[in-house]
Design a protein around this nucleic acid. Structure first.
Lengths: 357, 357
DNA sequence: ATGAAAGCGCTAACAA
DNA sequence: TTGTTAGCGCTTTCAT
């Protein structure tokens, strides 16, 4: 049976390398070689081929090419949501570094759904990305960790390097690179900052048990209290997700609850978004920052500068850049390694020094 | 030559469907059918196959599957940068709708580089995504438009639908769906808002000739002035990109320049980021909003609410959702269609009503 | 219900 | 320098 061509039916077809070869009067191998550019060829042949390519508007089929053994030069990043500034900034760093290394960057999103996360990473694995970078906190659940570990192994087998960004490592025997920043130290530092200013009753908003990021931050908060020998009042810790609306809700409920005087002088929000929500409530109630209430956050993302928030700076882009660098430089895909980046406090104008300190 | 297997060399190999078939003692066709799930099969066979799959940790190779004619269920979105809130929000909408439709969502970034844009879209085309959604303003350059048009045609030929989000259509004969929002009307409305409050000298920041989005907004600004019979002073229009730092720079230079009294009472920033930068400068100089200077923006993205900015609300997520919906619902890939979404003013607290109005 | 075999479009030996 | 051809892993007729 003769090979099917565009003329066979009314349906338009994508031009294939065979069409190009035929059009240019050469063999498919010649076309392939000329397009790959890594081969010597006669200028006249080359010209014919290039003309055929542009006339037929030919683009190599990625699937066929991948099947034939060419590993796509790409890095993949998987985030919960792309509107979260932290993820977005890390993704930015990944993208910059990937571009610098001549790699394409593919972003997959999970919407926070573990099933979709697995599906998305599976897709990246199928796509044979050189590196798969997973950003964000996770449910620190054993079954889940086991699944991630097996994904890491599968990726390693497929020749891609898994990088976990801003989440705890899966264990020394799991072939994954961890690039983290120090949540606990950051929270410790900023809580100490409040304590040094004389605050003793510090409301802590955004606890979320089982999620690594808030967990570590709360741990830092508690450690700082302990270090300063300030009694820890569990009643000052409020559960909530790390969103602006949640910050608003938590603060409002807190203020509405007590009829007496406020039982705190400062608020530690487990991220800047929460802090922004808190600020909204305070302003609505006519409470000034820092005069009436001191407020600190965590992340140093856009809202922080807008609202003059003293907060913990996290090296977001740096995280992404280093993730790519390590994944690509590593000679062995599936190597285990761990990097911990530092954080630092950015002092703006949201903390009041209490009298007598 | 016998087929190569994992035992042939020390190199680990990814399990293939053949390995699974062998392991389960069935044929590859059976494995394929069972995995696709759309075929009747004996429960015992099914069990054997599933066990082999999980033991070998098999994942179908996307390239092979794509080659064999299975169109991946995915939509692609191409943005300049993922840290830009507007793009991020549109991407969010795309992602939501794609997930709802059971599609995977791939995000490609271009960094604003036309070359990379072309390369990225080419990649999406190769990947055979059902829809390719391009978000953001473009250089309204003829050569560029011609290239996009030919890309649209190529995508249509490959069976994917191109959607242009928030950018002008390429022409009636180009097979692309356009989903836009009304920049000019929005700018007209908010400028009128200032004019109605008695402002006559309105500084306009963020002009960028040749870029569709700022161009349309500036056009709305001018149209509103004309409609109110307020003379248009080109000296009040300042060039700059739509970033916070640029807003800061433009405003500072403007304030530093004039030694006399300010020659404007209000500022129209062509987006909220610029407005945020403007606000930073004003605060540094001890100028209050809206008491000393009125300020409006455009976009209604996160910074706007933080800084109590009166601005134009753009339906970001909606844009993304509709883009996906149209692309997927359209029976003919490559259909031309156009949708224009409305905007509306969000009044906060950044405009002062001048005396005598 | 299952198997055998023909491609999908491309790359990379191997020949010429 | 160019052509021929054997796969890459999968799906899908066509047989059985």
């Amino acid at each position: 049976m003769p090979r099917r061509t565009a003329a066979d039916d009314g349906q338009p077809r994508l031009a294939t390398i065979r069409d190009v070869a035929q059009h240019a009067g050469v063999s498919v191998a010649t076309v392939s070689r000329i397009l790959s550019g890594t081969y010597p060829s006669a200028p006249s042949t080359r010209a014919k081929v290039m003309r055929a390519v542009s006339e037929l508007d030919y683009v190599a089929n990625a699937h066929a090419r991948g099947l034939a053994g060419v590993r796509p030069k790409s890095v993949a990043i998987v985030v919960n949501s792309v509107i979260s500034p932290h993820y977005a900034h890390v993704a930015q760093g990944v993208q910059e570094e990937a571009a610098r290394e001549g790699r394409l960057c593919i972003v997959g999103t999970t919407g926070g759904d573990p099933e979709r996360e697995l599906a998305t990473i599976g897709l990246m694995r199928q796509e044979q990305a050189e590196a798969v970078i997973r950003v964000g906190n996770i449910v620190a659940d054993d079954a889940y960790r086991e699944r991630m570990a097996s994904i890491a192994r599968a990726l390693a087998r497929a020749g891609s390097q898994l990088v976990l960004c801003g989440r705890p490592p899966l264990g020394p025997d799991v072939p994954a690179i961890g690039v983290e920043y120090d949540n606990t130290a950051g929270a410790h530092a900023i809580t100490s900052h409040l304590l040094s200013a004389g605050h003793r009753r510090i409301l802590c908003l955004g606890r979320r048990s089982g999620y690594t990021t808030p967990d570590s931050r709360i741990a830092g908060y508690r450690a700082a209290l302990a270090a300063h020998r300030v009694p820890h009042d569990p009643g000052l810790e409020v559960d909530g997700t790390m969103e602006r609306g949640e910050g608003y809700r938590m603060m409002r409920e807190r203020l509405d609850r007590g009829s007496g005087p406020r039982d705190f002088t400062a608020v530690f929000a487990s991220n800047d978004l929460i802090a922004a929500g808190v600020r909204d409530v305070l302003r609505e109630r006519g409470l000034r920052i820092p005069d009436d209430v001191s407020l600190v956050g965590f992340d140093d993302l856009p809202p922080a500068a807008d609202i003059d928030l003293t907060t913990v700076h996290v090296p977001h882009e740096e995280l992404g850049r280093i993730a790519v660098r390590l994944a690509l430089r590593g000679e062995t895909p599936g190597a285990a390694q761990r990097v911990l980046l530092g954080t630092h406090i950015v002092v703006r104008d949201s903390v009041r020094r209490l009298r007598g300190v």
